[in-house]
């Protein structure tokens, strides 16, 4: 590569500006930092729960019901009991939740119990969401401050957990359930657990 202006460059090196030369390195350093985070983020396969929670019992939580619903909320003791269940973390303000909603409705219609953790939401917004889209949830716990979601290790909404008959977490999906995840991952896990 031709570097045609070399003499000029050395001239400029002697100007007072060269004191500030390190500033030109700043963007690179910032990017190295961001790139580092992206790299670490990449090694943590976020589609799966940290192995610490897989095959472990559901973390202890006890959530009140949504205003106006008589389902008694959702707590640790509601899960397990010889039933395979889907725990879906959702919010009315989350667009991907709206995308995956029909999949949950389909599963619920097929008789698979689905319960919801409603994440950082306003009661009137959830009511509107469920009134329009329909509710696949047998029970919903209102997680106003997001505490239960943190205990579950939730990155963002939506996320879905499959809980086995023994009340242990068998599978986790981060992001919206789409046709492919449903057929390739969720159904096989459900089938294996119900056997």
């Amino acid at each position: 590569m031709a570097i045609t202006h070399r003499p000029e460059a050395t001239d400029l090196d002697r100007t007072p500006k060269s004191r500030w030369r390190w500033l030109f390195l700043l963007p690179l350093f910032v990017f190295v930092g961001v790139g580092g985070f992206l790299a670490v983020g990449l090694t943590r396969d976020p589609e799966k729960l940290p192995s610490a929670l897989i095959d472990k019992p559901v973390p202890a939580f006890d959530l009140p019901p949504l205003a106006g619903r008589e389902d008694g909320g959702l707590k640790t003791a509601d899960l397990g009991h010889g039933q395979v269940m889907l725990v879906n973390v959702f919010a009315s303000w989350c667009i991907p939740c709206k995308v995956e909603h029909p999949m949950l409705m389909r599963l619920a219609k097929e008789g698979i119990p689905v319960v919801g953790i409603n994440y950082k939401d306003k009661p009137e917004d959830v009511a509107r969401f469920l009134a329009e889209m329909g509710s696949p949830y047998q029970k919903i716990g209102a997680d106003r401050d997001g505490r239960a979601a943190i205990d579950f290790g939730v990155y963002g909404v939506p996320e879905t957990f499959i809980i086995g008959k023994d009340g242990k977490i068998a599978y986790r999906l981060a992001g919206a359930i789409q046709e492919r995840e449903l057929e390739e991952n969720i159904r096989p896990v459900l089938k294996a657990l119900t056997r």
Binding site: P27, L28, F31, V32, G35, L38, A39, G41, L42, D45, P46, E47, C94, I95, P96, V99, Y155, G156, V157, P158, A174, G175, A176, Q178
Partner: peptide, 30 residues
Amino acid sequence: VLTSVHAFATDPSRGLFILLILIVAIGGSL
């Protein structure tokens, strides 16, 4: 997957390739 940064790595081989492109294109130019 529209949720958040975890869309980044839905397929590890793709994620790695992407990161490589980012490092060369952005890191190299900076």
